[in-house]
Design a protein around this nucleic acid. Structure first.
Lengths: 208, 208
DNA sequence: AAGCCCATGTAATGAGTTACATGATTCG
DNA sequence: CGAATCATGTAACTCATTACATGGGCTT
């Protein structure tokens, strides 16, 4: 309806090509696509379910995708999308040009961290602890994904993309250790044995 | 006008607190604030000039900021903003709660990289080269900032935030080397001495 | 004369998220 | 019997960006 079907007037958002590229790989329903996109691109290019549907109809309007109705017995009928010849050309064109626009990084953690001098010590260490926990989770998740894809050569790029995230997260854990040392907050283990802040570089080595 | 002046109905965006926190540090005009925000938060929480103005008037509506008219001789008059008592309380409240929402990472590079199998070899190496260049620039810029802030204790958090970016960028350069090795694209030096892909770990060491 | 710095905003646009709406089937 | 899965969408919202508008003073 309110679709922006004219590719000449302005450049399409990258998410449009993300969806197009995924359908090029394997035809799918909107529902399928959304969950597949979440697994494949979720870490560096989230495409929500709603957005997936919107991009699909935009791509239909552009003539880059077409739908086939599939009736199902135990599940609702669905529209399975596949790429057209024009769509294939569009993907090729997109892949042959350098990424424009895109790439943003926003960190609510760093934003708050910038004002750390005005934070209560307790809140600061909480902030850092929470950050470490989220990084630990990321490391675990990505390591598992990499492990899973190790022996699947067709998923090579996915594995390498996950590795990109893993290396970044590891570097940030290293940064956290540096920061905690400089701010003389020992690594948070307030259980027993009061941290005598023995300047240990051992904490840097967490490449598990 | 169409401002959302009621903090009880829904949580305010983090950018609102970003502006509030900066004004808390030093009163400034909208114009000043925008350029200061760009320097201080630009790498992890961009606040455009237009957005800065919008947030300032929102904060005025909330009673968290107030303006003083300042007439100038050689420059246009301006409104200098400073924080109110209520504003100070709002900052304190914000700082004592864990970051909600925020933190997004979107990489147009990784998105394209995921479809690398369908790329022409030339376009792929171009993609990687461009990425390396942007990372190199980031590393240089952040290293310079860190160097500049080394002997300014009041800018400690800024220095550490920059270090966060530096460590991430370094890790990504390391990742790039791994990837180029695996995809058997030697590091791009097509000048002379054809790269015999001597598996060198030397390229990993770019902590200059 | 061109162009940047200071200064403040409005208007238009859009990308993306969250909530809402509906409904059959299957599994614990 | 409730929850999850499969399936498709609409509606509302708003954050954020880009373009537009204006204008004096200073620098090259």
């Amino acid at each position: 309806m309110t679709a922006y079907t004219n590719p000449r007037s302005r450049t399409l958002p990258e998410s449009t090509y993300a969806v197009l590229g995924l359908i090029d790989e394997r035809p799918a329903s909107g529902y399928d696509l959304a969950s597949f996109a979440d697994r494949a691109l979720g870490y560096f290019w989230p495409v929500s379910r709603t957005l997936a549907y919107r991009e699909l109809s935009r791509l239909e309007g552009l003539g880059w995708l077409e739908a086939t109705n599939v009736t199902q017995l135990r599940y609702p009928d669905k529209r399975v999308w596949s790429i057209t010849e024009a769509g294939r050309r569009a993907v090729a064109g997109w892949l042959s040009t350098p990424p424009e626009g895109g790439s943003t990084f926003r960190s609510a953690f760093l934003l708050k961290f910038m004002f750390a001098i005005r934070m209560q010590p307790h809140d600061l260490s909480r902030l850092l602890t929470d950050y470490r926990e989220s990084l630990d989770t990321t490391v675990r998740d990505l390591a598992a994904i990499i492990d899973l894809l190790e022996d699947r050569p067709e998923a090579r790029m996915g594995r390498l993309a996950a590795l990109h995230g893993l290396r970044s997260a590891e570097a940030r854990l290293g940064w956290l250790a540096e920061v905690e040392q400089e701010l003389d907050l020992g690594p948070p283990e307030p259980a027993e044995g009061r941290p005598d802040s023995g300047g240990d570089a051992a904490a840097r080595d967490r490449t598990a």
